[in-house]
């Protein structure tokens, strides 16, 4: 088996793991709150489609690495997956319907769990950063959010939306 093939198989398995986590999260969410998004056969199809679109996005991102335009080469894989999915969802409403039967918040919980584990070894780096930067960080994050929100608010007002 070629290394590329092996790499793709690994990606496929990790993606499978990801959608399995989502299913598990949605199941537990249902236990906690029976009114949340139900698990139906559409949920399984939706998860399958999420898996497929993610995988297609990975392949497209790899192919785009060969394009001689820097912006396109540097475009993140996350963006390619969104664009792939958006394009296919515009083509068929069936994809939209299936994906929407996967609970949104159930998708976010597993990601943040893995994110928490992934940063475990960086907690020590915190000691190297000064408290001053921590204060600045609050204003930096709040600053971009507030400025964007105010501009959007004004824009929507002008648009008469």
């Amino acid at each position: 088996m070629s290394p590329t093939m092996r790499r793709y198989i690994r990606y496929a398995l990790v993606l499978l793991l990801s959608v399995s986590f989502i299913l598990f999260a949605q199941e537990i969410k249902l236990l906690k709150n029976p009114d949340s998004t139900p698990i139906t056969s559409m949920t399984f199809i939706g998860l399958g489609i999420l898996w497929l679109f993610s995988f297609l996005g990975v392949i497209i991102a790899d192919l785009m690495k060969m394009v001689p335009i820097k912006v396109i080469r540097d475009f993140p894989i996350l963006g390619w997956v969104s664009i792939t999915s958006l394009t296919l969802c515009l083509i068929s409403d069936f994809f939209v319907e299936a994906i929407q039967s996967v609970d949104f918040l159930a998708i976010t919980t597993p990601i943040l769990t893995v994110a928490g584990i992934s940063v475990a070894n960086r907690l020590v780096d915190l000691r190297k950063t000064s408290w001053k930067i921590a204060i600045v960080a609050v204003f930096v994050f709040a600053g971009t959010y507030i400025c964007s929100a105010l501009l959007a608010q004004m824009g929507l007002l002008f648009a008469g939306h």
Partner: peptide
């Protein structure tokens, strides 16, 4: 921990795929 940080981005991909289905009906 290495696995988690290396593949976090792939764990995130289904979320990004989900967004396609949110944007499409409102394009």
């Amino acid at each position: 921990v290495e696995f988690a940080s290396k593949y976090l981005i792939f764990i995130m991909l289904p979320l990004m795929a989900r967004y396609g289905s949110d944007v499409a009906p409102q394009i």
